[in-house]
Design a protein around this nucleic acid. Structure first.
Lengths: 180, 180
DNA sequence: TGGGTCATGTAACCTGTTACATGATTAG
DNA sequence: CTAATCATGTAACAGGTTACATGACCCA
């Protein structure tokens, strides 16, 4: 149960619409949690039924009407409860289809696998470049209180992760070269 | 669609039962892909309907009867297709509830967050120790052909990943100490 | 006599993915 | 004129999680 809480966390910064929530989500949390637009709308409905949020329809003449969501006190309590509740042990896990494929790659020939590893590495380099930009923008917000510091920490994780992937891929390519 | 393919990959090493598949899965792929027992049985049914596998009932007198699954030619083709098909770009992504929490941890006080980070680090150290053992057992199988080399590569990934997590956590704890 | 292993699952529910639908305004 | 942006979703399906059910054998 993380998407609901991710949404709560964003609503904690102030009321928004599903549309804006979706954009904000994709700009911030997307590096470590992905959600489809349709899923966000579904969760918003469920959360309103649960009483964590309320909505208000804003009538607009120039643009389509919108639904502004706000967090309730129940919602704020739930966010706090989730943040405080210690579940680190269950939370850490790797889930990576690329590694599943690699595990079975003995079926293919080494040349092909080296090539795939190179593509993987290039993807990581691209991701790394994006993350570097995120880190820079977090640094610029240092004066805005504590929150941006924590945003920055998740970005550092991304940087370290992709750097690790790149050097691991290097080593694995060397190992495969020796298998030829 | 990765669990079906994970199962196919394991069945490629020879016919097995759902029960043994479940155990093997949890001993090997579990580091980077998790599956419930019930899910494995469900997928086996679906795969049989799709014609990727066939089953044969083995009658046992001392133990409950079992269902032995074997891969069909269609299944073997599907495994090859999946392995060859290049989807690295879609496959790489981080999905980590711990980072979602961290992102919103500005809501909590620094002391608490340092403590949580330390717990995270300890969990990683435990995982790392397990992975080291896996690496050793992969090294012992070096003479068994190519497959164990690839198993080893996934284990190296695990090692590098948890080492990265541990040093990242160190840096983040230092950063939080400065915030006190 | 109680717990562990062997061996099979079903049912209900929750979450994630993909595709589709509508309709207005605005900028190039 | 066409594409993008604003703003809302629904429907169907796939995949993941949790809880429950059965029953025999073996070992301490």
């Amino acid at each position: 149960m993380s998407l609901k809480h991710g949404i709560l966390g964003l609503l904690n910064y102030g009321p928004t619409t599903g549309y804006d929530l979706d954009k904000t989500f994709k700009e911030s949390l997307n590096f470590f949690w992905q959600a489809q637009t349709s899923q966000i709308y579904r969760e918003l409905n469920a959360m309103e039924k649960q009483g964590w949020i309320t909505s208000e329809i804003i009538i607009q003449t120039d643009k389509p009407n919108k639904k502004l969501y706000s967090m309730t006190d129940t919602g704020r309590d739930e966010l706090k409860r989730w943040l405080t509740f210690d579940s680190v042990a269950e939370d850490i896990r790797v889930r990576d289809p690329f590694l599943v494929k690699l595990f079975f790659s003995g079926e293919l020939d080494v040349e092909k696998n080296i090539e795939t590893m190179r593509v993987f590495q290039q993807c990581c380099e691209k991701e790394l470049a994006e993350i570097q930009a995120t880190i820079e923008s977090c640094k610029q917000m240092k004066n805005m209180g504590n929150a941006p510091v924590y945003w920055g920490m998740t970005a550092y994780f991304g940087r370290d992760y992709y750097q690790m992937c790149i050097s691991w891929a290097d080593n694995m390519m060397k190992e495969m070269e020796r298998m030829k």
